[in-house]
Computed example of a mutant assay.
Amino acid sequence: MENQTKTCLECGTPIKGRKDKKFCSDQCRNAHNNTLNSDVTNAMRNINNILRRNRRILMDLTPNGKAKVHRDKLVEKGFDFNYFTSNYVTKAGAIYYFCYEYGYLPLQDHFYALVIRQEYTES
């Protein structure tokens, strides 16, 4: 078997130590993983920021797990109804929209029922 010198995936310097080692230091490992996990484009970064803001707004308005608010209050806080992470359709056909574990259900007269998805909050 040929003796091949492995190089760090981040900086390219030769690696000493274990055979399966991929990085020369914790700093290079962290830098590499931060690059992989970063938002690649401005569009992704902007969408993730909107989703986080939507979640934060829902969280602030739902301190006890459930609430009912008017659309104007959500809009006033900067909520963007175009962005959500998932939806849930009930047996009756109602559609809950979720920003991670916080959700909202459109009601009559521009009101919304706010909820927390229980399966995410139970440990």
Rank of each mutant, 00 (worst) to 15 (best):
E2T: 13
N3T: 15
Q4G: 02
K6H: 13
K6G: 06
C8F: 08
L9H: 08
G12R: 04
K16S: 11
K16I: 09
K19T: 06
D20M: 02
K21T: 11
K22R: 15
K22Y: 08
F23S: 07
S25F: 05
D26M: 08
Q27A: 15
C28M: 11
C28E: 12
R29V: 03
N30K: 13
N34K: 02
N34A: 05
T35G: 03
N37Y: 11
S38Q: 15
S38G: 09
D39I: 01
T41L: 01
N42Q: 14
N42M: 10
A43S: 08
A43D: 12
N46K: 10
N48G: 06
N48Q: 15
N49Q: 13
N49D: 13
R52H: 13
R52A: 15
R52F: 11
R53T: 09
N54S: 10
R55L: 02
R56K: 14
I57A: 05
L58E: 03
D60Q: 12
D60K: 07
P63N: 08
N64C: 01
N64R: 10
K66A: 07
K66W: 01
A67P: 00
K68H: 07
K68Q: 12
H70T: 01
H70Y: 00
R71W: 01
R71V: 00
L74G: 03
V75P: 03
K77Y: 06
G78E: 03
N82C: 07
S86F: 01
S86C: 03
N87S: 13
N87D: 14
N87E: 15
Y88C: 12
V89T: 15
V89L: 10
V89N: 06
T90E: 12
K91T: 08
K91H: 08
A92W: 03
A94Q: 15
Y96P: 03
C99N: 15
C99L: 06
E101I: 04
G103Y: 00
Y104K: 05
Y104L: 14
P106F: 04
P106R: 07
D109H: 09
F111V: 06
Y112I: 00
Y112V: 00
Y112M: 00
A113R: 09
L114I: 06
E119T: 14
E119R: 14
E119A: 13
Y120T: 10
Y120L: 05
T121M: 10
E122F: 07
